[in-house]
């Protein structure tokens, strides 16, 4: 019963996400003015940047849930933190892919070390991939939840530290060749961007709720099976 009502919330978010994303796609492709320098390829901005910001939001949410777990000891926060890292890793990987495509269309290379956000996502990808390795190596139980939570907390601290490190490394790794100018966005562009960001966040929310329901069902199923075996 409770699973179903939660799931209904998930469906509502999914519908909202689909609506806003369609609107965002229409705005980005048809309505937003073309970028003077980069031409039509700049429109991937409306996909790439919201996805990147959503990934940060997922990692932040995971850390918040990790903190809640350590604070309260309530086990449900563990599954929520885990699911958030899961979503963050998916959106983080998408950031790498879309960023790479953008680099190709803008500068003709698939990868550029000069692109700080992309380098940061590569580091984060490595870090959070190790989260799964860590989790899978630990036996199911409260200890796993706690250790995963501490690692997830390290993640949100690593994000600004790594960002700083990557900026500092610019000085000796590669001279900055490509600069992508900051958000010199017109009002129309900014509005389109906001709609796309809202849509992506809703999409992440819907996926998160859906995945969480699945993972909860999985746990519940194992509990019931265990209870049956005990007779």
């Amino acid at each position: 019963m409770s699973t179903w009502s939660r799931n209904r919330g998930g469906i509502a978010v999914a519908v909202a996400a689909a609506t806003v994303l369609v609107a965002g796609a229409a705005l980005a492709l048809l309505w937003a003015p073309e970028d003077a320098d980069q031409g039509p390829s700049q429109r991937i901005f409306y996909l790439h940047v919201p996805i990147a910001l959503t990934a940060y939001a997922c990692f932040g949410w995971a850390a918040w849930k990790a903190l809640r777990l350590l604070w309260t000891g309530e086990q449900r926060h563990d599954l929520e933190s885990y699911t958030a890292v899961h979503m963050g890793t998916i959106f983080g990987s998408l950031t790498l892919v879309t960023g790479s495509i953008w680099a190709k269309t803008s500068w003709g290379v698939w990868w550029s070390w000069g692109e700080q956000q992309l380098v940061l996502f590569l580091v984060l990808f490595l870090f959070y991939a190790a989260y799964f390795m860590l989790r899978f190596s630990l036996a199911d139980g409260p200890a796993r939840g706690r250790i995963s939570a501490v690692y997830a907390l390290f993640g949100v601290v690593l994000i600004p530290i790594s960002f700083l490190a990557i900026r500092l490394a610019e000085n000796f790794i590669h001279p900055v060749v490509f600069t992508r100018d900051g958000p010199q966005m017109s009002g129309d562009m900014f509005f389109t961007f906001c709609v796309c960001l809202a849509g992506t966040l809703l999409l992440a929310g819907a996926l998160y709720l859906n995945e969480l329901t699945g993972k909860r069902l999985d746990v519940r199923l194992r509990e019931l099976r265990e209870a049956l075996e005990l007779g």
């Binding site: 490595l126 390795m133 860590l134 630990l138 690692y151 990557i166």
Partner: peptide, 29 residues
Amino acid sequence: MAAAGRARELLFPLLFLPLALPILVGGVG
């Protein structure tokens, strides 16, 4: 953390290296 799990020898470098990258930057810089 790694010692709590299976395969700690494999796991530890994976956990450690992404976190150690900023140290590399500071040291080389």
